[in-house]
């Protein structure tokens, strides 16, 4: 009896400890996002005093600061945060659902699909505004279905899905390259955005549709958080735990693609953020709780920090995707080595 209750107590204590640790991790990440956000607002080519930054944020006119903070830095930082949240959340949803860190949307072609559709809409059909996002979302969903369908053969094997995705991605990349090549007004700025992703020339009104997408699709995803966790244990186990597997999978795919595609339509496919956020968050959170929110916050920190580094800390100015790409590439190789050696898990 006493042995029994002491076991229960240990389990409860363990669970409490994990919950507490999870809360700490979340708040640290949140503080980190706010801190990097504040730094990017205050420190640029020139340093703006925090008081002035605050006054600009509250809508006051401050000589000298209103333009640099309000017009340049704020839209950029806001768009970075939103895109980072979307990429981080959408990426980890795929990785968790498919139980493979390589199955992130930017590797299996979903980001390229959204990117290709967005470029097509903008360059060939001369569209602009939210309709581009809709275009990108539809195309992203189409690519997701295509990759899933093509890799389906007595069930979907992870490796096959990833390879099929890489093949599809190669095709879509060459579509992007082709559209950029044949674009009537070749602009390097545009091209950079669609090749690696960039938040150059960000406007606040770009942020609004992205915010709606984040709230809507993110909400859907978070409401499925428990089922998604169950899917990590395998389809059979998840079904045994009362998860409706195919319905959950469908919802998760739609929501994650929605997030990724909306962000891609706004900033271009910022390289490897969707791929990196999940594993980084996994390292921090360990097994203490759901990866969704930590990964989203990690994505936001990544994009904000990488953009800051690309703008101010390197010789010359680099778009954010170049910095995240240079970070992500070695990690991708490392991951392949690790997956091959010990078999993969997040």
């Amino acid at each position: 009896m006493t042995a029994h209750s002491s076991t229960i107590n240990a389990v409860i204590a363990n669970r409490r400890g994990r919950t507490r640790r999870y809360a700490v991790v979340l708040s640290v990440l949140l503080v980190l996002v706010v801190a990097v956000f504040a730094v990017t607002l205050a420190v640029g080519q020139s340093v703006t005093p925090p008081g002035d930054v605050l006054r600009v944020l509250l809508g006051e006119e401050v000589a000298g600061a209103s333009f640099s903070v309000g017009q340049l830095r704020l839209p950029r930082a806001v768009l970075s945060i939103l895109a980072g949240l979307c990429f981080g959340l959408g990426g980890v949803a795929f990785q968790v659902m498919l139980r493979n860190p390589l199955a992130s949307p930017d590797i299996i072609g979903i980001t390229s699909g959204a990117g290709a559709a967005a470029v097509f809409a903008i360059v060939v059909l001369s569209m602009s505004g939210p309709i581009v996002s809709v275009f990108a979302i539809v195309a992203g969903l189409g690519v997701a279905l295509l990759v899933y369908g093509l890799s389906f053969r007595n069930g979907v094997a992870g490796t096959r899905l990833i390879l099929v995705g890489i093949g599809v991605s190669a095709m879509l990349q060459s579509v992007i390259a082709y559209i950029l090549q044949s674009a009537p007004a070749w602009s390097l700025q545009e091209a950079m955005r669609w090749l690696t992703g960039s938040v150059n020339g960000a406007k606040l009104d770009q942020a609004l549709p992205l915010l709606f997408a984040l709230l809507f699709f993110g909400g859907v995803l978070l409401s499925r958080s428990r089922d998604l966790e169950a899917l990590r244990l395998g389809d059979d186990m998840a079904a045994a735990l009362g998860t409706r597997v195919s319905r959950t999978r469908m919802l998760v795919i739609v929501a994650a693609v929605g997030l990724i595609a909306s962000a891609t339509a706004a900033t271009g496919p910022i390289a490897f953020v969707a791929f990196l956020s999940g594993p980084i968050a996994g390292r921090i959170v360990r097994n203490d709780g759901s990866l969704l929110i930590p990964s989203a916050l990690t994505g936001a920190v990544l994009v904000l920090a990488a953009d800051y580094v690309g703008q101010h800390l390197l010789p010359g100015r680099y778009p954010v995707g170049v910095v995240t790409g240079a970070l992500g590439a070695p990690y991708l190789i490392y991951l392949i080595i690790r997956v091959n050696r010990i078999g993969g898990s997040l």
Partner: peptide, 25 residues
């Protein structure tokens, strides 16, 4: 075959991204 292709494709993606990072600016 699949492991080799996966290693190659991923390396290719990683290299392509490094090429962009070096040439773009």
């Amino acid at each position: 075959p699949l492991k080799l292709a996966l290693a190659g494709a991923a390396t290719s993606v990683a290299f392509a991204s490094l090429v962009i990072a070096i040439v773009l600016p």
